[in-house]
C-alpha cells in the first residue's frame, strides 16, 4: 500500500511542485519541533528546515519505501542536519554543550488527518521514553538530541565506554518494543 507521503515523494521525484507544497505542509510541522529542540534558535531552525526540505526535493528520486517510512526519512535527515549545525557551533566555541533537560512548550493536539490518528500512540511512545530507566534515557538524549558521540558521553558522564554503549542498546530495544506493540 502506498501512503500519501510516499505518493508525494514519488511525484516530487517527477518534478511536481504542487506535490512538494503538500509534502511540506504535511511534514514541516512534524520535523520542525525536532529541529528547534536540537538547535534551539528559531532563525537557525528555520535555516535547517529549509535545507532539509530542499534536500528532500533534490533527493526525492533516491527515496526507497523499503528502507523506511517518509516520516523516518525526513526525521533522520532533519536530526542529522540539525546536529551538523550545532556541532559547527560547538567547534567554534569548544565549551558549549547544549542543555538537554529543558523541553519546549508542552504538546498540544494537532488538527486533522492521520497525524491526529497517530496522536494516541504518540502519547504511548513519549511515555515510553519517560519510562526508561534514567540512565538509559540520559544516554539516548545526549546522543540523539545533543549530538554527543559515545566517547563524548562516556567522558561527560564519567562512565566506561562499554556501559554507555550497553545503556544505549537497552534503551533503544525498549523503544522499539513499544513502537512494535503500538503499530
Amino acid at each position: 500500500m502506498t501512503t500519501a507521503g510516499e505518493e508525494f515523494i514519488r511525484r516530487m521525484a517527477a518534478g511536481d511542485r504542487d506535490a512538494f507544497g503538500h509534502f511540506y505542509d504535511r511534514y514541516a510541522p512534524l520535523v520542525f519541533p525536532l529541529i528547534l529542540r536540537i538547535v534551539r534558535d528559531r532563525t537557525d531552525a528555520a535555516d535547517v528546515l529549509q535545507e532539509v526540505f530542499w534536500e528532500a526535493w533534490q533527493g526525492a528520486s533516491g527515496y526507497d519505501p523499503a528502507r523506511g517510512t517518509p516520516e523516518a526519512w525526513m526525521i533522520t535527515r532533519a536530526r542529522t542536519r540539525a546536529i551538523d549545525r550545532i556541532r559547527a557551533v560547538r567547534r567554534r566555541s569548544e565549551t558549549f554543550v547544549p542543555p538537554v533537560d529543558e523541553g519546549l512548550a508542552p504538546a498540544s493536539p494537532e488538527p486533522g488527518g492521520d497525524a491526529a490518528e497517530r496522536a494516541e500512540d504518540r502519547g504511548v511512545i513519549r511515555t515510553a521514553l519517560n519510562q526508561l530507566p534514567h540512565a538509559q534515557r540520559e544516554v539516548i538524549e545526549l546522543a540523539y538530541y545533543a549530538g554527543l558521540t559515545q566517547t563524548e558521553i562516556s567522558a561527560r558522564l564519567q562512565q566506561p565506554l562499554g556501559t554507555v554503549k550497553t545503556r544505549i542498546r537497552l534503551g533503544l530495544e525498549r523503544l522499539r518494543d513499544v513502537v512494535r506493540r503500538a503499530t
Binding site: 510541522p29 512534524l30 520535523v31 520542525f32 519541533p33 525536532l34 528547534l36 529542540r37 523506511g68 517510512t69 516520516e71 523516518a72 525526513m74 526525521i75 533522520t76 532533519a78 536530526r79 523541553g103 519546549l104 512548550a105 508542552p106 504538546a107 498540544s108 494537532e110 497517530r118 500512540d121 504518540r122 502519547g123 511512545i125 513519549r126 515510553a128 521514553l129 540523539y144 533503544l172 523503544l175 522499539r176 513499544v178 513502537v179 503500538a182
Partner: peptide, 15 residues
C-alpha cells in the same frame, strides 16, 4: 530503530 526514534521525535512537541 530509526522508525522508533522518528515516532519518538514526532511525539515530541509542537512548534
Amino acid at each position: 530503530s530509526r522508525e522508533a526514534l522518528a515516532r519518538l521525535a514526532l511525539g515530541d512537541t509542537r512548534a
